[in-house]
Design a protein around this nucleic acid. Structure first.
Length: 824
DNA sequence: GCAAGTTCATTTTTT
DNA sequence: ATGAACTTGC
C-alpha cells in the first residue's frame, strides 16, 4: 500500500484506500509508551487535552500521535496542522515524525502560530485588499512608527511613550480589538483616552497604507479573514482535519479564537458552494451534508504558563473542558527527564501556587545528586563559581553543549560573559543581542524590504540617508508631506523630487536611490515561463539582489571606507548577512525575497540554538522553556530579580515568577545549581541583594550549599569558601539575608577595580597582552587569583590558553590574550 | 547638514 | 555604566 501524497489538495483521498486496522500497523508507534501516553496517542474524538507535566514525554506523544494518524490511514499528512512554540520545535517535530514514518511526510503543516498565519495571509491577501508581499514589522519598527505618531500628535506632553502605547495596542490586538472597536467603547471625554484612540487609529491606518502587519496582526488578521470570508475559512476548515497545539497554556485570546475558527464545521450551504467550484468535498461530509469540525488536540501544563505578560490566557487550558464539551483529558505525570531530587524541589516550589490542580512529578530513576547552592559576594563572584563548576563538569565528561545557564533578565549576561571570556569557556548567548537587530543589518534589510514592498515607507525612510547622501530630515519631511497631500506613496513622491523645489544635489541623490531600487526590483521579476507557471523561475537570487543593493547604494563602501573602527565590524556583519542569504538561496531553491524576509521576521530566540556547537548556552528563563540540559545553572536567585521587581504590582505576578522558577528547575536532567549574589550592580550602583523567597520553598535536605546566604554574609572562618574568596573576615554569624556593611564596601571596591580594567569586551577595547609568551613552568600573577605556575599552554594565536595551577585557588584555564596576568 | 559634546533613561520576560 | 537622543558649534 503506497501513500500517494498531494500536499495541497487531499481531494479524493477517501477513494484511495480503506483505512487499515489501527492495531497492526500502529503497534511500533505505541510500544514502549506508558499507559497514559499510549492513550494520548490512540484516543480519537473531537477534542483531547493532554496535561503534560515537565519532562513527561509530550513531544514523543505528539509525534507518535501524528505518525499514528498517518500510518493508520486515518489522515493524509496534508490534513494535519501542528502548532509549536518555536520554529526549532517545529523542525524537530517534523524530523521525528518523518523518522517514525520512514518516508517523507510533505504537506504537513508543522509551524508556529505566526508562520502558519503568514502563510495563510500571503495566500489570501487579495481578500483583505493587501499585497501578498506585505511587510512584517517587528517591535523596533512599530516603536519607530509610534514614536513618530506620538511626536506629531504632541502626545508625549500627555505622558505617552512609544513603549507604553505599543504595549497597550498589543494587548488590545491580542484581545481582537481594533482602533474602531476600541474607540466606540472608550470614554472620549477623557482627553487621555481620546488621544490614545487617535494614536491607535493613526497607527492602524499607516500599517494599512504601507501594506504592513505587526506581529499581533498576523494572528488577528487571520481570525478576521476567517470570520469575514466564510468561504475562505472553509478551505482551511476542510483541509485541516487534525489540529494539534503544543504549549497551549501560553496561547492568548486571538490564538484561541483562531483555533476555534479552524475547528468550526463547514455549513451545508458553504459545502455546496465549494462543490460547485470544483473543490472536492465528497467523503468529507456527514449525514447533514456538513463537513464536521476538525479534531483538536492540545498539550500543555498550566504550571508552565509564563507568558501572561504577552496576553497568554491561562483560562484557555483551565477551561478547555468547558469550551470543548466531551473533551477527553489525559494526564502525563511520570517524568523521564530529571532525577527525583530535582523533581522534589520542583514539586515543593510549585505547590505554593494556589488554585492549581495538584499534580506531582515523579520518576522511577532514583534520587540522583543533590542540588548545589552557592552565594557569591558579587555577580562576578557568582559567575566565577559557575565557570569553575562548568569546568569541573567538563573535566568529568559532560559536554559543553549539555550545560546551560539561565537568568531572569538579559542584563545579567554581562558579568557572566566577562568571566566566561576570561576563563576561556566556550559559550553562546541565545537571544539577547540579536544579529538582525544590529543597525547595519536592519539597514541592509530595509533595502530588501523596500524592494519587496514599495509601499513600505518605514523602510524607505530608513535607507533614505543611509549611507549619508545629503538627504536630511527637512527633505524627508518634505517628501512625506508631498506624498500625504497628493495621496501618493512615499516611493512615488520620491520620483517627483523635481517638483519639491529641492536643490540639484539632493534631487540627484533621491533619483539615484530610486533608480537603484527600481533596478533591484527588475532583477526580481521572473522569466515569462516563471510567470506562466506561477513559479519564481528566472528571478534573481536573494543574495544577488542584496549584493547589488549594497554595492549600488554605496552602503558597503561607506562602511569599508569609514575611519570609525567599529565600521569595520559592521562591514563584516553585513558580509555575514550576504553569506546568510547565500545559505538561504542554497537551502530553499526557488524561494523568493519575500520568503527570506518572512523567515527572518519570525525567528525566535530558541531557533538560533545549534545543537552541534560545543558551547555552553546562556539564555533567559523564558527562552529556556521546552529545552533540557544535563546540567542547569539558575542564577541571580534574588528578591527583585526573581521574582522581578516589576512583577510585584502585577496581579498574579509572583505566582507567574514562581512558575518561571519551576520551568527553570525542570529543565535539568541530572545536575542543578542554584546561585545568587549578595550584592548586585544595577544602574551602575551596587545594591545589597536578598535571597529569593523561592529558595526557602525548597526542602533543605535537597540542597548542598557550597556557600549559603548565611555563610556569605557572615563569612565565618570555618565554612567552605568561594574558590576565589576574599580574605575571610570575622563577625557575627549572619542569618539568611542579613546585611554586612563590610561586605558592601568590599564588593564595591572589588567590582570597581575589575570594571575599570575590564571594560566591556564588545565596545571598548579589552586589555591586550598581545605577544606575551608563556611556557610551562612560568610563574605568573593574576589580578584575582594571585600567583601560580603555568602547567601547559594550548591553542593558537589570540586563542592561546594557559592552564595554570594557582597557589591559593587551584587549577584554572585563562585566555592569555586578555587575562589580567603578568609574568613574574 | 554634520560632528562632537551633553543629558538622559534604561532593565522583565518575546512571537 | 552604557548607549541612545538631544543640543551646540562649525
Amino acid at each position: 500500500m503506497t501513500l500517494i501524497l498531494d500536499p495541497d489538495d487531499p481531494a479524493g483521498w477517501r477513494e484511495a484506500d480503506a483505512p487499515a486496522s489501527s492495531g497492526a500497523s500502529g503497534s511500533h508507534l505505541t510500544d514502549g509508551l506508558n499507559p497514559q501516553q499510549r492513550e494520548a496517542v490512540e484516543y480519537r474524538g473531537p477534542a483531547l487535552l493532554i496535561v503534560a507535566g515537565a519532562g513527561s514525554g509530550k513531544t514523543r506523544v505528539l509525534t507518535h500521535r501524528i505518525a499514528h494518524l498517518i500510518e493508520t490511514r486515518e489522515a493524509w499528512p496534508s490534513q494535519i496542522l501542528a502548532i509549536t512554540f518555536t520554529n526549532k520545535a517545529a523542525a524537530e517535530m517534523r524530523e521525528r515524525v518523518q523518522a517514525l514514518l520512514g518516508e517523507g511526510a510533505s504537506g504537513m503543516w508543522i509551524s508556529t502560530f505566526h508562520s502558519a498565519c503568514v502563510r495563510i495571509l500571503r495566500r489570501e491577501a487579495e481578500s483583505l485588499g493587501m499585497s501578498s508581499t506585505f511587510t512584517i514589522y517587528d517591535s523596533a519598527d512599530t516603536r519607530t512608527m509610534l514614536k513618530r505618531i506620538i511626536k506629531e500628535l504632541d502626545a508625549d506632553t500627555m505622558g505617552f511613550t512609544p513603549a507604553g502605547a505599543q504595549a497597550k495596542i498589543s494587548k488590545l490586538k491580542n484581545e481582537l480589538s481594533d482602533a474602531d472597536t476600541y474607540a466606540r467603547n472608550a470614554n472620549l471625554n477623557d482627553p487621555q483616552e481620546a488621544v490614545f484612540c487617535e494614536i491607535f487609529r493613526q497607527y492602524s491606518r499607516r500599517l494599512r497604507d504601507q501594506h504592513a502587519l505587526d506581529f499581533d496582526d498576523l494572528i488577528a488578521e487571520t481570525v478576521y479573514l476567517f470570520r469575514a470570508f466564510p468561504k475562505v475559512a472553509a478551505l482551511y476548515q476542510r483541509r485541516f482535519r487534525h489540529i494539534l497545539v503544543d504549549e497551549y497554556q501560553d496561547t492568548n485570546h486571538a490564538q484561541y479564537a483562531l483555533i476555534r475558527e479552524l475547528t468550526r464545521p463547514v455549513e451545508r450551504e458553504v459545502v455546496d458552494e465549494l462543490d460547485a467550484h470544483g473543490i472536492l468535498v465528497r467523503g468529507l461530509t456527514d449525514d447533514h451534508g456538513e463537513i464536521p469540525g476538525a479534531s483538536l488536540t492540545v498539550v500543555g501544563d498550566s504550571d508552565q504558563s509564563i507568558y501572561a505578560f504577552r496576553g497568554a490566557d491561562i483560562r484557555n487550558i483551565v477551561e478547555f473542558e468547558r469550551d470543548f464539551p466531551g473533551a477527553k483529558v489525559v494526564l502525563l505525570e511520570q517524568n523521564y527527564r530529571s532525577t527525583q531530587n530535582i523533581l522534589s524541589a520542583a514539586n515543593a516550589v510549585i505547590q505554593n501556587n494556589f488554585d492549581r490542580k495538584d499534580k506531582k512529578l515523579w520518576t522511577a530513576d532514583g534520587d540522583g545528586e543533590k542540588i548545589v547552592g552557592y552565594t557569591g559576594y558579587t555577580a562576578h563572584d557568582e559567575a566565577q563559581f559557575i565557570a569553575d563548576e562548568i569546568e569541573a563538569l567538563h573535566r568529568a565528561g559532560v559536554a559543553y553543549r549539555d550545560i546551560a545557564v539561565f537568568y531572569r533578565t538579559n542584563a545579567q549576561t554581562r558579568a557572566l560573559e566577562e568571566i566566561f571570556v576570561r576563563s576561556a569557556l566556550p559559550y553562546r548567548v541565545v537571544g539577547g543581542t540579536k544579529f538582525y537587530e544590529r543597525a547595519e543589518i536592519k539597514d541592509a534589510m530595509a533595502y530588501l524590504a523596500a524592494v519587496a514592498n514599495p509601499l513600505d515607507e518605514l523602510a524607505l525612510r530608513r535607507i533614505l540617508n543611509t549611507p549619508k547622501r545629503g538627504i536630511g530630515p527637512a527633505t524627508e519631511t518634505a517628501i512625506a508631506q508631498f506624498a500625504e497631500q497628493n495621496e501618493i506613496s512615499f516611493r512615488q513622491a520620491m520620483r517627483s523630487a523635481a517638483e519639491l523645489g529641492l536643490g540639484p544635489k539632493v534631487r540627484g541623490a533621491i533619483g539615484g536611490l530610486a533608480d537603484v531600487l527600481d533596478q533591484a526590483a527588475a532583477m526580481l521579476v521572473p522569466s515569462q515561463r516563471g510567470l506562466d507557471e506561477g513559479t519564481n523561475e528566472g528571478a534573481a537570487k536573494v543574495s544577488d539582489v542584496l549584493v547589488y543593493l549594497l554595492e549600488a547604494s554605496g552602503l558597503i563602501a561607506a562602511l569599508r571606507n569609514s575611519r570609525d573602527p567599529q565600521d569595520e565590524t559592521r562591514a563584516e556583519n553585513v558580509e555575514e548577512l550576504v553569506a546568510q542569504t547565500r545559505d538561504f538561496d542554497r537551502e530553499n531553491p526557488g524561494a523568493t525575497l519575500v520568503d527570506f524576509l518572512t523567515q527572518v521576521s519570525l525567528v525566535a530566540a530558541a531557533d538560533e540554538l545549534d545543537d552541534a556547537s560545543g558551547t555552553v548556552s546562556l539564555m533567559t528563563l523564558h527562552t529556556a522553556k521546552g529545552l533540557e540540559y544535563h546540567a542547569v545553572f539558575l542564577t541571580g536567585l534574588e528578591e527583585g530579580l526573581l521574582p522581578h521587581q516589576m512583577s510585584a504590582t502585577e496581579p498574579g505576578g509572583p505566582a507567574e515568577e514562581r512558575r518561571l522558577f519551576y520551568v527553570g528547575i525542570t529543565r535539568a536532567r541530572k545536575r542543578l545549581y542554584l546561585s545568587l549574589a549578595m550584592s548586585r550592580a544595577q544602574f551602575g550602583e551596587v545594591a545589597v541583594a536578598m535571597p529569593s523567597r523561592y529558595l526557602q520553598e525548597i526542602p533543605e535536605h535537597l540542597v548542598d550549599w557550597k556557600q549559603s546566604p548565611g555563610m556569605a554574609t557572615s563569612r565565618g572562618g570555618t565554612q567552605p569558601r568561594a574558590l576565589n574568596a576574599r580574605r575571610p573576615g570575622s563577625g557575627p554569624g549572619g542569618a539568611w539575608g542579613t546585611r554586612d556593611r563590610d561586605l558592601e564596601r568590599f564588593s564595591v571596591t572589588r567590582s570597581a577595580a575589575t570594571k575599570t580594567e575590564w571594560a566591556n569586551k564588545v565596545t571598548a577595547n579589552v586589555r591586550d597582552n598581545g605577544d606575551l609568551t608563556l611556557d610551562s613552568g612560568d610563574r605568573i600573577r593574576h589580578a584575582d587569583f594571585g600567583e601560580g605556575t603555568v602547567n601547559q599552554v594550548t591553542g593558537e594565536g589570540s586563542k592561546r590558553i594557559a592552564h595554570v595551577a594557582f597557589d591559593r585557588v587551584g587549577a584554572k584555564k585563562l585566555l592569555i590574550k586578555i587575562a589580567p596576568i603578568e609574568k613574574l
